[in-house]
């Protein structure tokens, strides 16, 4: 007869031992915590202000360059000839209103786009650092 037929599965499962984490577990967590980039831990008010300031500065630069090199007419011309105008007239109209430099200041748009670019750049740098750290 197989004695296994008398098993108490609940009692057996309760006897399965718990595991123990390594002695240096907490130390390792704190070390990895300290190695996290500050901006990853918390994007505080200074971080947001810095990104906004950078965006505005870049917008001013772009605006100045656009004026200095007379780029705006050619950029406007490109936009008017784009597929948005010809193929998607309604969407294009909405975009045209949004991008109309008489409705919204181009500096605002440039700042907005520059801010997004800075955020993307920051994310790419953080990811690159994290990958390098994991590989190390």
């Amino acid at each position: 007869m197989n004695k296994n037929k008398n098993i108490d599965i609940d009692a057996l499962l309760r006897r399965l031992p718990a595991e123990k984490a390594g002695d240096d577990f907490t130390g390792n967590v704190l070390t990895r915590l300290a190695a996290l980039p500050a901006s990853r831990r918390r994007l505080n008010g200074w971080g947001i202000a810095g990104i906004c300031a950078g965006g505005v500065a870049l917008a001013v630069l772009v605006w100045w360059a656009g004026d200095a090199f007379s780029l705006w007419p050619s950029i406007d011309g490109l936009f008017e000839k784009s597929a948005l105008y010809t193929s998607f007239s309604q969407i294009a109209a909405a975009f045209a209103v949004l991008f109309d430099r008489t409705v919204v200041s181009p500096a605002v748009w440039n700042g907005f786009i520059a801010g997004i670019l800075l955020l993307l750049l920051d994310a790419a740098i953080q990811k690159h650092r994290a990958t390098r750290k994991r590989e190390a």
Binding site: A18, A21, F25, T26
Partner: peptide, 10 residues
Amino acid sequence: VNAHKDDVFT
């Protein structure tokens, strides 16, 4: 971490 490390690790 010390309070929960063994349970999480298990």
